[in-house]
């Protein structure tokens, strides 16, 4: 589904990604771990189309298309979803209207009819139940006054509604207490499917106790330096990133 080849990216003249390669197939869940500043969030932002990053070289192919040539909204409509590390508060724009506009933009792109209010609300109620969210949330401004946990739940709710092909979860566990983490993890797990790929970017392995990945990659200094199964994350947890940097000689 996603093929990243030798990707080099920089921001403000500073090289962040330095030859990153990665392949993910539908149905897989990959975790990308790494120390702060390794380029984890940059990778998520670059894949979602954030402006300001300069792609120096390399390529990203998504379902056979050149992902880097698409605007952020085109990527979203093609099925890329980024759950933000810091979801943005937008007072004055209603949650429910944003969800509806987002879903209809994607449906329209797929050649499907836009949903009427009734059909839309039916979907929303179901997904909100999944994320254990109160109905009052719908009429609030987007993320306005939400706690850290509520913001992250809202991201996963959006993901559940939009049903992307590729979900990028950027530090989704940060700022969550254990109960909130369970709700978020249950939400993500319920969205695992043979048609969908998920990339989780995380500094800590605790999220991986709840969302068990198929593959774990270690990102350091802008490149994937090691890949393995679940046990790699546990080793990292036990020995820290310094151990790894010595082990791979970076």
């Amino acid at each position: 589904m996603l093929k990243i080849k030798d990707l080099h990216a920089r921001i403000d003249g500073k090289d962040i990604l330095k030859g990153l390669s990665l392949e993910i197939s539908a149905g897989e869940v990959h975790a990308i771990m790494g120390p702060n500043g390794a380029g984890k969030s940059t990778l998520a932002q670059v894949l979602a189309g954030r402006e300001g990053y300069e792609i120096v070289s390399g390529s990203v192919e998504f379902c056979g298309r050149d992902l880097l040539a698409l605007a952020p909204e085109e990527r979203a409509r093609e099925g890329v979803f980024l759950a933000f590390q810091y979801p943005v508060e937008i007072p004055g724009v209603n949650n429910v209207y944003l969800l509806k506009a987002a879903l209809n933009a994607i449906r329209k792109h797929r050649g499907e009819d836009e949903l009427d209010a009734y059909a839309f609300m039916k979907i929303i109620r179901e997904k909100m139940q999944l994320m254990q969210m109160d109905a009052s949330f719908l009429n609030r401004g987007v993320n306005e006054g939400f706690s850290g946990g509520e913001k992250k739940r809202n991201e996963i709710l959006q993901m559940a509604v939009l049903e992307p092909k590729l979900a990028l979860l950027d530090e989704t566990d940060s700022g969550l207490d254990i109960d909130a983490m369970k709700v978020v993890a249950d939400g993500v797990n319920s969205l695992r499917s043979p048609e969908r790929a998920i990339i989780m970017v995380t500094h800590y392995q605790r999220l991986l106790d709840h969302i068990v990945p198929d593959v774990v990659h270690v990102l350091a200094d802008g490149r994937i330096v090691k890949s393995g199964d679940r046990s790699l994350a546990l080793e990292l947890e036990a020995h820290g990133y310094e151990w790894l940097q010595q082990a791979v000689g970076t």
Binding site: A48, G52, A71, E73, R75, R77, I90, L98, A105, Q158
Partner: peptide, 19 residues
């Protein structure tokens, strides 16, 4: 306009003008 908020809305499929 706040660039992050603009990106947030576009990443949800809204075109730039609407965002």
């Amino acid at each position: 306009l706040d660039a992050t908020a603009l990106f947030y809305l576009r990443s949800r499929g809204l075109d730039e003008d609407t965002a």
